[in-house]
Design a protein around this nucleic acid. Structure first.
Length: 376
DNA sequence: TATTATT
C-alpha cells in the first residue's frame, strides 16, 4: 500500500481525510495504516504525557482512559469509537455534548480494555488531523471537582508575547494543562488575549491573585486574568444563533430557557387546537428503536451541516440524533435530513414551530417521518 | 476581550 493510500481513512460510514504534513508520516507496526503527525504546537503537547506528578488527588490514575480534545464539530460518538477501535478493543467511548443544544463540545473520552492500547492510541492518534482540526489524545486525569473550572482568560497581553512567554509567566503558580494565544487569522498578529488552563482550580485562583493587574517585563500595560467563560453554560451564544436563524418570523431564543413544564403547557395548547391532537402519533411514525421520534426535514441547502439541525431542534428538547442526507459523490446535502427527538411532546412542538420556518431563504418542511414514499 | 479539557 502506498503512502498516499494511507491518507484516506474510512471509519464506518465516515470517510476521514488525513493530511500528513511535510511527509512526516508514522506507520504503526502491527497495524494496517496509521498516518500521524506529531504535534509541534507546545499547547497541544502540554499535559499529554505521563499523568504522574499530579498533586491533590488520592484517586489512582487510569492507564486505559483517554481524553480526546479538539474533535471536529461534526464528528459523532460512533465515528470516534470507530477511529479508536482501529487501535484495540474499546471498553467505552463518550462524546461530550451541550446539555441544551446537543452540540458536540469538541471533546470526549475513550476507555480501552488494555493499557497498552491506550498508550498506542496516544502515540498513534495524538496530532492526527481530522478535517480542519488537529486532535489531541492524552490520558484523562481522574475526574474531580478540583480540576474543574481551572481555565483562565487572559487579556491585555503584549502583542509580542509568545505562548512560551505566557507559560513562563503562569507556570510558577501551578501545572499548566494547556495554553493558547489567539491570533488574527488575516494579519497573523497576536490579538493580545489568550487562555491558560491549570490542573487544579486552586492553582488558577492563585494565578488570578498573583497575576491580575501584573505588568509583564518590558510591557507598559497590566494584564487582566480571570476565569474563562464556561462553554456549557454559555447559552447566550445559542440564543444569538437562534435569533439569527429566525430574523423576523419566529424568535426561538426564549425557548432555550423554558422548563419542561412550560414545554408541556405549550404542548397542551398546541394539541387542543391541532388536528394532530386526534392522531397524536402522526402517520406511521414509530419510535425509532426506542431512542425517540424521527422527524423529516425537507428543503435544506446543499451546504447544510449536522450542527444546523442540532441548533434548530435543540431548543425544543432532547435531540438524540441528527443526520443530513448527503450525496455520496459530492458530499453535499441532498436537500433533506432527519432529526430524532427523545420525547414525543417536544417533537410535536418542534414540528409545529419549525414547519414553514425560513432558513437561508428556504422554507423548510418539517413533519414526522412517514414510512411510505408518498402520503395522501 | 473569548477557544472549547473531566464523563
Amino acid at each position: 500500500m502506498s503512502i498516499w493510500r494511507r491518507k484516506f481513512w474510512r471509519v464506518a460510514s465516515f470517510p476521514v481525510i488525513v493530511k500528513p504534513s511535510m511527509g512526516k508520516v508514522r506507520v504503526a507496526e502491527n497495524s494496517s495504516f496509521f498516518a500521524s503527525e506529531m504535534m509541534e504546537n507546545h499547547a497541544n503537547n502540554t499535559g499529554s504525557g505521563s499523568p504522574d506528578g499530579r498533586t491533590g488527588s488520592s484517586t489512582e490514575d487510569s492507564k486505559t482512559n483517554l481524553i480526546v480534545n479538539y474533535l471536529p464539530q461534526t464528528m459523532t460518538q460512533d465515528e470516534i469509537k470507530s477511529l479508536f477501535s482501529s487501535i484495540g478493543e474499546v471498553e467505552s467511548c463518550k462524546l461530550i455534548r451541550d446539555k441544551v443544544t446537543g452540540q458536540s463540545l469538541g471533546y470526549g473520552f475513550v476507555n480501552y480494555v488494555k493499557p497498552q492500547d491506550a498508550e498506542k492510541a496516544i502515540n498513534t492518534l495524538n496530532g492526527l488531523r481530522l478535517q480542519a482540526k488537529t486532535i489531541k489524545v492524552s490520558y484523562a486525569r481522574p475526574s474531580s471537582q478540583a480540576i474543574k473550572d481551572a481555565n483562565l482568560y487572559v487579556s491585555g497581553l503584549p502583542k509580542t508575547m509568545t505562548q512560551a512567554d505566557l507559560e513562563g509567566l503562569f507556570e510558577a503558580h501551578g501545572r499548566i494543562i494547556t495554553s493558547r494565544i489567539l491570533f488574527d487569522p488575516v494579519t497573523g498578529q497576536s490579538r493580545g488575549v489568550g487562555f491558560v488552563r491549570f490542573d487544579q482550580r486552586v492553582e488558577a485562583e492563585r494565578a488570578i491573585t498573583e497575576l491580575n493587574g501584573h505588568i509583564p517585563k518590558g510591557a507598559t500595560d497590566p494584564i487582566t486574568v480571570k476565569f474563562a467563560n464556561n462553554p456549557s453554560q454559555n447559552h447566550a451564544k445559542a440564543l444569538q444563533q437562534a435569533a439569527y436563524l429566525a430574523p423576523a418570523r419566529r424568535y426561538l431564543g426564549p425557548m432555550l430557557h423554558q422548563t419542561a413544564r412550560f414545554r408541556q403547557a405549550l404542548l397542551s395548547n398546541y394539541l387542543r387546537y391541532s388536528p394532530m391532537g386526534a392522531d397524536p402519533m402522526g402517520v406511521g411514525n414509530i419510535p425509532n428503536g426506542g431512542t425517540g421520534f424521527c422527524i423529516f426535514v425537507y428543503n435544506l441547502a446543499p451546504d447544510t451541516e449536522d450542527s444546523v439541525l442540532w441548533q434548530l431542534f435543540g431548543p425544543f428538547g432532547a435531540v438524540t440524533n441528527v443526520k443530513v442526507i448527503r450525496d455520496f459523490q459530492t458530499n453535499k446535502c441532498k436537500g433533506f435530513g432527519f432529526v430524532t427527538m427523545a420525547h414525543y411532546d417536544e417533537a410535536v412542538v418542534a414540528i409545529a414551530q419549525l414547519n414553514g420556518y425560513c432558513l437561508g431563504g428556504r422554507v423548510l418542511q418539517v413533519s414526522f417521518k412517514t414510512n411510505k414514499a408518498h402520503k395522501n
